[in-house]
């Protein structure tokens, strides 16, 4: 018997969940399977949310209208991830960015790939790159990549950073 004090013991916790998407996200994911990005529009303020919101966060009403958006968008701001951690899709360094997808009013947090991280700019134009096999997840958009269009001015998106 050791007289060393017990300071730690392992107590693994495992819980399994079967997560349901809810009808609004389910509609969105069905469209993802077709390679389409579909947001929802608030009937009051007319803002388009992507990913769709079941209720408008500012007006507090149920959203009903679906609207196809993208596939192009604008990088409004970004960060370059320079260290590895578990579950990464791309090798660091790579950029995560707020992408204001055309036709939406809220930036989507996603990855920018196929682009030298030192080349990342606010205002850069990008397009969605789909995975070869589409699954019902936003990860079916593997990343956004530069689409070759000229950058847009900061003033044109400064309200959507």
């Amino acid at each position: 018997m050791s007289d060393d004090p017990v300071t730690r013991f392992k107590a693994p916790v495992r819980l399994d969940y079967t997560v349901t998407a809810g009808s609004v996200t389910a509609d969105f994911l069905r469209e993802i399977l077709k390679g389409r990005l579909v947001g929802r529009r608030c009937p009051d303020c007319r803002c388009v949310y992507l990913p769709p919101r079941s209720a408008c966060p500012t007006c507090g009403v149920i959203t009903t209208e679906q609207i196809e958006v993208g596939p192009n968008g604008t990088v409004t701001t970004f960060s370059v991830i320079r260290f590895p951690f578990e579950g990464q899709v791309l090798e660091p360094p790579y950029a995560c960015a707020h992408v204001l997808v055309d036709g939406t009013d809220t930036p989507l947090l996603h990855i920018v790939g196929n682009c030298d991280v030192d080349d990342m700019r606010m205002g850069m134009r990008v397009r969605a790159v789909w995975a070869e096999e589409l699954k019902p997840t936003l990860a079916s958009v593997r990343y956004f990549e530069p689409n070759g269009e000229p950058d847009v001015t900061y003033d044109s998106f400064s309200g959507h950073v």
Partner: peptide, 16 residues
């Protein structure tokens, strides 16, 4: 089992 409503929609409907 409520498969239709996500949390925001539950909260929206019940608070309204």
């Amino acid at each position: 089992q409520d498969n239709l409503l996500d949390e925001p929609e539950m909260v929206q409907r019940v608070t309204a």
